[in-house]
Design a binder for these strands. Structure first.
Lengths: 156, 156
DNA sequence: TAGAATAGGATAATGATTCTTTTTTAATAA
DNA sequence: TTATTAAAAAAGAATCATTATCCTATTCTA
């Protein structure tokens, strides 16, 4: 964890940005909530617990900076807020998401499932892919508690 | 074209909605600009040309209604505005997009490239897929004017 | 035609995000 | 250490997209 902070610090320094206390607090919140997909407001509220004097605008600026540096990815599930997602270290691709339309949970798929598809697109459409966004909307494993029967959505 | 309007009209009626003049004008704008990915504001300005008295709120309401009926898809490329995209008739899947990071153009891929990937996800993650969003960000064919050589992105 | 319900127009309200101004902090040079 | 300068932050105003509200218009039915 400390080492990740250090690496992010180096990344900032290499572009002559500083890891200020506010920025560090923000990064720590992201690290501590890596599972979640926090909105700027969510991050703000969590950062406020460890650095009560921070302002919302600062959080926005920091998240924007981290997005630029590719430390986080800014994603949008269509609910009107941007969410910020720590990029897996070493991963050059954006991970995929599973959004449950029942409970709203967002799960991640770390594997890159698009290798073949990207090849087809690059060749077939003559398009040089730099990044991708793939999100599936549907019913998550918790919500259809599929224990062997096909009957989904019984009642409720 | 008329027949598509008629079918949309039937769809509305089947849920006891009416195809009012304002709604019809909105649908016509969408049909006439099927290639583009219009924002609500874009649609509003275009509809105003044929029905000057229409209000922005009505356009929003109509687009929301059409989204509910699955006549259009609401998409978001991360630029802060929602865009509305006529669903290809008969297509049960959401088409994919190619967003050029140079010129901003958005191209569509009608083919469904995710068949295999979806199978993997449904089985591997026990997730019942209802819809998907796939967008590639990169350089479009116009911007790297790749006329015949294989050498993509050498250097850069 | 009266009455009820749906839809639209105008605009206020909301909520997320960005901008602006002033203050604080950090880094450097004398 | 102290003055100088620039980057960063705080606070809140401003902006932009979207939604809600309130009232009028239209349509449908009895």
């Amino acid at each position: 964890m400390e080492s990740r902070i250090d690496r992010i610090k180096k990344q900032l320094h290499s572009q002559s940005y500083k890891l200020t206390p506010q920025r560090e607090a923000t990064v720590r919140v992201l690290l501590e909530n890596e599972e979640d997909h926090l909105s700027a407001e969510d991050v703000y509220l969590l950062v406020k617990e460890k650095a009560p004097e921070i302002g919302l605008a600062t959080v926005y600026r920091t998240l924007e900076l981290l997005t630029e540096l590719k430390v986080v990815d800014k994603i949008n599930f269509g609910d009107g807020v941007s969410r910020y997602d720590l990029r897996t270290e070493g991963a050059d691709h954006f991970h995929h998401h599973l959004v449950c339309i029942e409970c709203g949970a967002v799960d991640e798929i770390q594997e890159d499932l698009l290798g073949d598809v990207e090849k087809v697109v690059e060749e077939g459409w003559n398009f040089k892919i730099k990044d991708h966004r793939l999100t599936f909307h549907g019913i998550c494993h918790r919500c259809h508690s599929d224990d062997g029967n096909e009957d989904k959505g019984s009642g409720e």
